[in-house]
Structure formats: C-alpha cells, structure tokens
Amino acid sequence: MAVYGYARVSTTDQDLSLQEEALRAAGCEVIRSEKRSGTSTEGRTELQTLMDFARKGDTIVVTRIDRLARSIADLAILVRQLEAKGVALKATEQPIDTSTAAGRCFLQMLGVFAEFETNLRRERQLEGIAKAKAAGVYAGKGRPASVPAEKVRELHATGMGPSAIAKELGISRMSVHRALNPKAA
C-alpha cells in the first residue's frame, strides 16, 4: 500500500515546491508534478501516469482538490476510476478522504465550488473583454503587427533588396520576406 502525491500549477511561472513539500510531509513516497491547466484532464500526462500506476490499497494525496480537477465532471470521473481500482484519495488542506462517507461528501461539495469558481472567472473575463470592446480598446487576439508591411512593399517596389529594407526599417530579413509573401508565412 503506497502513498502517492500529485502536485499541479496552471502556469509555467508558478512554483510547485510548497505543494511538493506538503505532500512529502504527508508521507508520499512518489510525487508526480506538472504545470498544466486544471480545467481539463486532457494532456495531463503526470496525472494519467499516476492514475494508471496506482493499485488497490494505494492512496493518492493532493494538497487541495482543485489541484486535481476544476470541473465536477472531471472530478467525478477521476474519483470513479480511483474507487473502481480500490485507490483512496486524500487532501492535506481539506477534510477529504474517499475511504470515508464524510470525506466523499466533502469532496463532492468542494468539486461543485471549484467548478463554480472557474465559471465565475470565465464570466469576469468575458465581461472585461466586452467592456474593452465597447471602449474601443480591444482589438481581438494577438498583438498588432510590428512590421510595416505596406512600407516594406513600397521600398521593394523601388528596387531595394530585402537586406537593405531590413536595415532601413530596423527589422529582420525574415520579416521583410514575410511581408513580401504573406501567404507563405
């Protein structure tokens, strides 16, 4: 009967060390960590490895349930898979222990709140985008083009070569080629 830990943060600039330290203190023999969004289980290879590797009588530990899943559907699927294998799930910062009825109940309540929080965040983001669009400051996805394509074409039409255009405008030769042939980019 092994105790495994799972740590996750959403972005590459976030730090996993506090979660890993808490999992070691909880007795985890192996800790799988990854930097991936929790809104889906897709592409979370460390979680999948842990799910595949855990056996009957093992325990998987997370610091908080939102490290495991942010949607009630994903959480339910993961918990069902673990229960079918006879693997318990525990959280160090929450009273979750799927080997008890109270722990399973609390897990389901927290899963609902984690999904609610994700949905609120999405609504706030969409409201912010709508407000920015109304103010005329939201141009859509991506940053504006930094290469003056029209100027590149004008200089090229005068007979100037890509290297000279690049030097004149302070851009790379590759940017000049992209501006001259946008379909190839």
Rank of each mutant, 00 (worst) to 15 (best):
M1F: 08
V3L: 10
V3S: 05
Y4P: 05
Y4G: 04
G5L: 02
R8N: 12
V9R: 03
T12I: 08
S17H: 10
S17I: 04
R24S: 13
A25F: 00
A26G: 12
C28D: 08
V30Y: 07
S33K: 06
S33L: 09
S33G: 12
K35T: 12
S37C: 13
T39D: 11
S40M: 03
E42G: 00
R44M: 09
T45R: 14
T49K: 12
D52K: 13
F53C: 05
K56C: 09
K56T: 11
D58M: 10
D58V: 07
I65L: 15
L68Q: 03
A73I: 12
D74E: 12
D74I: 03
A76T: 15
I77W: 08
R80G: 14
Q81T: 13
L82I: 01
L82H: 01
E83D: 15
K90F: 03
Q94F: 02
Q94P: 09
S99F: 02
T100M: 08
A102W: 02
A102I: 05
R104Y: 02
Q108K: 11
L110R: 06
V112Y: 12
A114W: 05
G128R: 03
A130C: 05
G136D: 10
A139C: 00
K141P: 03
G142Q: 07
R143Y: 02
R143E: 07
P144L: 07
P144M: 07
P144S: 10
A149W: 02
A149S: 15
A157R: 15
G159R: 11
P162L: 06
S163K: 15
K167S: 15
E168H: 14
L169G: 11
G170M: 12
M174H: 13
V176P: 08
H177I: 15
R178C: 02
K183I: 06
K183M: 11
A185D: 12
A185W: 12
